[in-house]
Design a protein around this nucleic acid. Sequence first.
DNA 1: CGGTTGTGCAACTATCAGGTTGCATGAATT
DNA 2: AATTCATGCAACCTGATAGTTGCACAACCG
Lengths: 117, 117
Amino acid sequence: MTARDERAGRVFHALADATRREVVSRLAQAPATATELAGSLPVSRQAVAKHLQALDAAGLVARSRVGRAVQYELNPTVFDEAMAWMAETGTRWDERLRRLQARAVSPSGAPRSRRDR
Amino acid sequence: MTARDERAGRVFHALADATRREVVSRLAQAPATATELAGSLPVSRQAVAKHLQALDAAGLVARSRVGRAVQYELNPTVFDEAMAWMAETGTRWDERLRRLQARAVSPSGAPRSRRDR
DNA sequence: CGGTTGTGCAACTATCAGGTTGCATGAATT
DNA sequence: AATTCATGCAACCTGATAGTTGCACAACCG
């Protein structure tokens, strides 16, 4: 705890906001710029830019200039820290992972669907 | 997305705060009351009470009266929703779960320790 | 070169969240 | 019944943050 906890905390904080979660969700499908994302979101471009800045600071996304545009792409490995924290804190490590794994359907494709509840 | 996402969001929000994470961590070891927790935390009892209220609202803990005291205990199953969100959002389901599983040491005991960084 | 378009920066507002103190309530204990 | 002690409620302060608008700057296109 502490170093791990801190980083996990940053991830949790980043994912606590609905808009930010939506942004992350979009970036998980394809890299995009702030203006692109803002085009299909109910907030201004600057708001999105701020969120991206926050996500960047948390290490969740990576910046890269394309032309004059700045593309952001997701860095999913950072999730691991947070997931590990949760799995360790919640008792019964293995059982929880098994249960989680039971949700996975196709190996690498898009599992999802089925009883969204 | 939406129902799942919302609940995951509540969990993320709950775990975004350091104090709250500490509380969760304590409750993972043993049930406790607000005053007990406050005794070993740098904040007031009321602050802890608020946090517990938030955690309760998020479904992370369960209340139960003992005498005149109110004990809280952790409900780890709620973590799954959030973990699933992360695992699904981060691409490569299986690979991430394998990597996560590699961190587990003893089956059901207290894994922890070893290279906290 | 001039227009267009995407970023970046700044100021400002409003809401929310974590924290405090103070007091009231309610259930054991003696 | 009186006391004790944990909880619950309320008002209040302060800092962070999500959002906005406005404008300046840089780069691409014609």
